[in-house]
Design a protein around this nucleic acid. Sequence first.
DNA 1: GCGAAAATCTTGACACCGTCAAGATTGTGG
DNA 2: CCACAATCTTGACGGTGTCAAGATTTTCGC
Lengths: 198, 198
Amino acid sequence: MPKKYHHGDLKNALIQAGVEILAKEGVGGLSLRKVAQRAGVSHSAPYAHFPDKQSLIAAISTEGFNQLYAELEAAISSHSKNPKKQLIEGVQAYVHFAMENLDTFKIMFSGVLEKEKDYSSFVDISSKTFKLVVEVVQACQNAGVLPAAPADLMAVSVWGQVHGIVSLALEGQVSHTVLDKHSIQDIVLVSIEQLINS
Amino acid sequence: MPKKYHHGDLKNALIQAGVEILAKEGVGGLSLRKVAQRAGVSHSAPYAHFPDKQSLIAAISTEGFNQLYAELEAAISSHSKNPKKQLIEGVQAYVHFAMENLDTFKIMFSGVLEKEKDYSSFVDISSKTFKLVVEVVQACQNAGVLPAAPADLMAVSVWGQVHGIVSLALEGQVSHTVLDKHSIQDIVLVSIEQLINS
DNA sequence: GCGAAAATCTTGACACCGTCAAGATTGTGG
DNA sequence: CCACAATCTTGACGGTGTCAAGATTTTCGC
């Protein structure tokens, strides 16, 4: 697949370097020039592979979504006969991904990427992820675990719930009176159970 | 309160200029130098009032939270005898604020402000806002509208649900199969009703 | 009310940033 | 093998956050 030119596979090396800088210095520390330096090329070499910085960010975000999708699917497919467990394990995996890849998660969901619809592979993997959520929700509905609203709408409810709590927590907006007593994992689980039919 | 020096009340003028640039050019277009220029002062005048750019962003975010708090309280206090209506109107007000002040909302919640706990007035107003949510949730619980879990935990659930859906929608992560059929307002309302005791 | 001290603002500089143009180098296909 | 395309380097440009030095204005103790 990737042909070897001067560097080898600079495009992926740049994405990888970006992920590393992101993890080490946060979103504010991510610059094209640092990415280039870490990959061992000159400051404008990236322009052979990405038309601009936004495009590299799109690639990093896409990579993040691919990983998130993989982890979600792994969590779900381990319990293919138990929709409720699929839901719970999927939620756990989502929270786990966010906490383990804090800045990648931020870049994926915090508006750093400004015109996401311009990047088709980003749109592809993120809508594929949404479809995965819809499937689990639908299975839960068929099993009577979730209410019988339209599946895509219910999927937005469930995903929104999880995503919102995680986002607020990462943003420091969840009061310490709550965080002192419960982990984010627990808070999300308790919240999701409010949506589940008793 | 604000004494008049050379400019008059440059500190607030800078915050206002920041809000305007934010609305016109988005988060990416917000620079200290543009803010200074719009306020009619030299490029480093802001340093008399803010130690760095993050500090100005904190002030803008704080201003945003003040406005959000005011709108939430207005929505809630119009229905002081009907907790369920308070909840629904409060949620509507939250969604309305997000959509009317898109980039301010982003700056408040999207990790642009990196060390939020360093800014005490930001912490004050945001925890005050959280307390407001807890109060409404508690009133709903007393009226049997919401389940009887610990109020602060339930508040995180409710706020997280609303905030998550709004965030995902603003990020373009809500599938068009949903958005074509429902407004964000409707989606959030339908979702919240899943949490309300029937 | 006056003069010292503090607050405010300007000017100029620095390093870093994203981006582009010109050219050098390297791989590929006819 | 050679023209061409892909890849990478060098150098430049304007914009950015920040700091230092100095000018200007207000405040405050006497």
